[in-house]
């Protein structure tokens, strides 16, 4: 029921093999460089999906001294999936939306190179 592979998606732990980055949790100073590093290791075209309230804006931790905010403080985000915690169906929905964004980016890249 929660199978994303029926859309042809598999989970891989390696940014170099990935098109979509699913990211949860807020960004603090230590994780900022890590997230940037991983984002840069993904080949274009790529999509970022921020999942959960903390990834969107910091959630309940937004006022903390060490939290800089949501994921978009470190890398550009394409799809936001709200919730705390998110429902699985919403995550799948977000991923499917990300697929269409990916398609868009891909077409843009193809048109640019033509």
């Amino acid at each position: 029921m929660y199978d994303v592979e029926r859309f042809g998606i598999i989970n891989t732990g390696n940014p170099k093999h990935a098109d979509i980055l699913l990211i949860t949790g807020a960004i603090n100073e230590q994780s900022k460089s890590v997230v940037e590093n991983l984002y840069n290791q993904m080949p274009d075209p790529k999509v970022v999906v921020a999942i959960g309230a903390c990834a969107l804006s910091g959630g309940v931790f937004a006022e903390c001294y060490n939290i800089m905010g949501g994921v978009d403080k470190a890398i550009p985000v394409d799809v936001y999936v709200p919730g705390c915690a998110c429902k699985p169906e919403n995550i799948i929905n977000g991923v499917v939306q990300a697929l269409s964004v990916l398609e868009e980016k891909h077409n843009k890249k193809k048109n640019k190179s033509l």
């Binding site: 199978d3 592979e5 029926r6 080949p43 075209p45």
Partner: peptide
């Protein structure tokens, strides 16, 4: 494999879609 794991699994031509997509990606 997917059916053995009680999942649905990808379309039959998925590997070809994957390869096509991979060719369109940046080379790092």
């Amino acid at each position: 494999t997917a059916r053995m794991q009680s999942r649905i699994g990808p379309p039959l031509l998925q590997p070809f879609y994957d390869v096509a997509k991979l060719f369109s990606k940046e080379n790092l």
